[in-house]
Design a protein around this nucleic acid. Structure first.
Lengths: 195, 195, 195, 195
DNA sequence: CTATAACCGAGACGGTACGTCCAGTCTTTGG
DNA sequence: CCAAAGACTGGACGTACCGTCTCGGTTATAG
């Protein structure tokens, strides 16, 4: 089986990396509003046409940069306790969202995605769903082990744990630290336990 | 004590109402992005200077219009059961947020507010906190009645109920209807009950 | 009779003058190609939106600037001889077109106008026709005096004098100086004399 | 003497012809502005690199295509009368320049050439001078025959005939048909006749 | 009944980012 | 060595919208 290369000049890997780096850096420095396409192009040493060739809009580029550079640590451990697994996972996620550099960026990008259902769908697919795949594993183990009552369903179960602290991050009305994560998860778990 | 009227021409009530109406209408018709200050001024038959005289920015105006025209129905009943009180309240709120006209607007405005901590604070103050005042009443009655374990604190309790479905509204990954509201509240309540 | 002023902020005279000056200066310095709208806006201390508010395109602006700043000296004297009148007029025009600053600009603008019949019509109306009005006067005096045979018509007569040297300016295949102007006019006049 | 062939793949004749055809066709269809290098390459089934390998710029290519495809009919007859010879020649040239397909193209290309003295020189060399060679023959016969006064010189003589109608074509202020050509030539000739 | 103050509509303006376009160059693979 | 494919830089284009400013004119209280 031979590797078939397409004709023509191949896409420049250097450019792509420079673009993603410039994007995330600008986003961290001055927020999504300062992250203009011109500024990205200039800093990456790239032409604006190249940006628009590979990303249909600023938001798509921001999402990609966030995924590529702001590595999310969402572990899917197997401690023997679904509760502990969830807590470890949620702590990882909250650390990502609460990171002083990345946190504001992701909030702003999330905010921008709220302007249209299409963008919101993209946000879900790229940010939420990949993380949720791991959570399904933890959930299923918890059900099998008898920790979680399967009648509630996986969506409800996950939202009971992740909804409260993500909601907090999106309004800032209360702190989100490891201790709070634990308390939230425990309350949710108590409610989700089989009767 | 006499009514002290300031000299000069008083603020035009007609203009203010026309502005708020034009703002909310434009927002509903085409989203926050189409709701430009020029469009608002034109439709309200008002000059742009008037807009900026009374509202410091587009976002402030949008928030005001949303509060003034999209009346939130967040009842604070006293059914004898804190759970039922919460459910009734949450249903009212969800109906507001899920309204096909107002819902998208509020999501977009919320999204825009995520671009800066200052705007987010304003959003909290004007949208969240007023509602939360009523919830504190329900919560306190629940604690007094022994339905809720006070050790969790009011913030956690409220977020356990309202976080999950608001999170859903902000991502659209699962439906938010009356039935779901009830299920969420019941699970949360089970977790919050005194041991 | 009262002077009726339109409502709203009046157009800024300073801006307009700065724009016209910046335009002609840039055109002289680097040609029509270097005369970008951004450069004009920057140099005039004006926003690009203002340019496009008053001039529909770069070419319209260039034409205006050329007319406003590069004053054309096309005298319409009455020496008693139509031939001498034409010669004096043609020398004025040629000095304008052959000016080392303005000449190249006008050639380039003329060239750009050739890209569309519409623009060419504008060029005619703004550059040619005003000059031609004066020439009609000279022509009519010449016919009345018996210097020119009216059977040829005014268009032909004028083109016989002005065509040859403008054609030269547009190709650069032969010099256009005062002496040449005189020779051209004399030959044309000899051909146009009544038999 | 052996035919020396250079090593490597020889230049494709098919490509060259396809390029010239695509160029002139696009120019006719949508003017010089729509005739982009990408469009030419695509239509000719050729890569852009090939275009730039053989033509230094778009304008050079356009000039070539105009010369290669829009064959100029500029006869150099010998009717026994220099006037008639000029008239026949001028009619041929005017038919070329006034052709509804080719005419606008050549005007636009001429216009583009006005942007720089270098391009204008190329235009002269490729379009004007070849035609002028034939005219010198007619002129010399006219002088020998005593129809034209040699004191005016060949440049002046030719410009008196060709200047007026080319000037008209470049501004469109008056029609250029066979009748007008004849009238122009006759007036010029009358002025150029030996006294 | 005038003066003063604050309002208002109209609309021009500076600034700035957007997303598009195209000329001309460069880098691959393949003939 | 030539050619096709096509990615790339650079930079102008014309549009859009925010928030400010400048007019002429209006509507109130204060004296």
């Amino acid at each position: 089986m031979t590797t078939k290369r397409k004709p023509g000049r191949p896409r420049s890997v250097d450019s792509e990396e420079a673009i993603l780096t410039a994007t995330i850096d600008l986003m961290i420095e001055g927020g999504v509003r300062d992250m203009t396409m011109d500024a990205i192009a200039t800093r990456a040493g790239v032409s604006k046409a190249t940006l628009y060739k590979w990303w249909p809009s600023k938001l798509h580029l921001a999402l990609d940069a966030l995924l590529a550079r702001g590595r999310i640590r969402a572990p899917v451990p197997d401690t023997g306790s679904a509760l502990d697994d969830f807590i470890l996972n949620a702590k990882g996620i909250s650390r990502f969202y609460a990171d002083p550099d990345i946190g504001p960026c992701i909030m702003q990008v999330w905010g921008e995605c709220l302007t249209s259902p299409d963008m919101l769908a993209i946000y879900r697919e790229r940010f939420l769903n990949p993380r949720r795949a791991g959570l399904h594993i933890i959930y299923n183990r918890g059900v099998a082990r008898g920790d979680i009552d399967p009648r509630f369903g996986v969506e409800l179960a996950l939202d009971m744990i992740y909804g409260p602290f993500l909601f907090r991050l999106l309004t800032g009305h209360a702190p989100v630290d490891d201790e709070e994560i634990e308390r939230i998860a425990r309350v949710a778990f108590a409610g989700l336990a089989p009767s």
